[in-house]
């Protein structure tokens, strides 16, 4: 369980809105700012946070789909930035992604057969058309779809079915690591459950490791082994799911968990923890802790000095005054 499969060290991704032709200030957004995470083999690692906190960017940076500006990503101890483009291309079969929007993630002009044949055409160019078709049919049955769906176009399916096709594509080359980028957020709740169950069945069957990016805390609780809570590009708290939900150390985690709706009407009157103030602009971060402008526990030091991640009871917490 403790073999590290994917690791990031001080990963940074910045986006810059370039200065115009006639000068003006170049603005830099640190979408991912110095994030280090370790994902162990066969675990489900969840990345949570509100919209715009950089969780999707982190997922894509790990797959090298967006350029990084600092830090490293290791896959089985191999630094991905040191790989040649060819080596990276062949490593891509080991790491795949499932997207949020099943309507945008399938090329509308390709039939299901062509969509699912693409992994094989890319990595197994010598495979015969007949073999490819057999593999595709097998993939479709793994995700619970009939093989005659091959002839159809993506728009002929419902969201849940499309998502299954997207999952089949990610599974095609027997990957070890899959980034699930809000993989169920766009689906109906009833279908979310089906797809989540499918994902966890597949995990057992094919010994997969998931990086599960989501803003849905009940999903995290349901499937994740480990959680990393992100806020404005930075990891605030990292820990085992059970512990972290039971006893959050970082104030942000506490408020995030408190904000999740509870599906129990008898608890309607539970104490609400509400934050005041706005999220600071990611272009213009406060000097100290980036949560200090909203944190009710913030003290002078929090506004001056950015906290480093500290190890605390097996967790990493970026806070000067954790809620122990």
């Amino acid at each position: 369980m403790n073999n590290i499969l994917v690791q990031t060290k001080g990963l940074k991704v910045t986006f810059s809105a370039e200065a115009g032709m006639f000068g003006g200030e170049a603005r830099v957004v640190k979408a991912v700012d110095d994030v280090s995470i370790d994902i162990a083999e066969r675990e489900t690692y969840a990345l949570v946070g509100e919209s715009g906190c950089g969780k999707t960017t982190l997922g894509r940076a790990i797959l090298r789909l967006v350029p990084t500006t600092g830090g490293q990503v290791f896959f089985r101890g191999e630094d991905l930035s040191s790989l040649s483009p060819e080596a990276m291309r062949s490593l891509r079969r080991k790491m795949q992604i499932i997207f949020q929007d099943p309507y945008a993630s399938l090329n509308p002009r390709m039939r299901v057969r062509e969509i699912l044949a693409e992994p094989f055409r890319t990595h197994e160019p010598k495979m015969s058309a007949k073999d490819v078709d057999e593999r595709i049919a097998a993939l479709l049955s793994v995700v619970g779809m009939r093989s005659d769906t091959m002839r159809k176009y993506p728009h002929q399916f419902s969201g849940g079915q499309r998502q299954r096709i997207g999952i089949a594509r990610a599974l095609a080359l027997n990957p070890e690591f899959i980034v699930c980028d809000e993989a169920v957020s766009a689906l109906d709740v009833s279908i979310q459950a089906q797809v989540l169950n499918l994902l966890s069945d597949l995990q057992k069957e094919f010994r997969l490791t998931y990086l599960f990016i989501t803003h849905n805390l009940s999903v995290v609780r349901h499937i994740a082994d480990k959680v990393c809570v992100m806020f404005l590009g930075k990891a605030m708290e990292i820990g085992d799911t059970e512990d972290l939900f039971a006893r959050p150390f970082h104030p942000y985690t506490k408020f995030l968990i408190a904000a999740a709706p509870v599906p129990d009407p008898t608890q309607r009157d539970r104490e609400r923890l509400l934050l005041k103030g706005d999220i600071p602009s990611p272009i213009n971060l406060p000097p100290g802790c980036r949560f200090s402008t909203r944190c009710p526990y913030a003290q002078e030091r929090c506004r001056m000095e950015e906290p480093e991640a500290v190890a605390l009871e097996g967790r990493a917490v970026s806070c000067h005054y954790p809620l122990v």
């Binding site: 789909l65 891509r92 997207f99 090329n107 693409e118 890319t122 997207g166 594509r169 080359l173």
Partner: peptide
């Protein structure tokens, strides 16, 4: 879907 293709290499 273009990103998916890039992710596939």
């Amino acid at each position: 879907f273009v990103e998916a293709a890039r992710a596939l290499g």
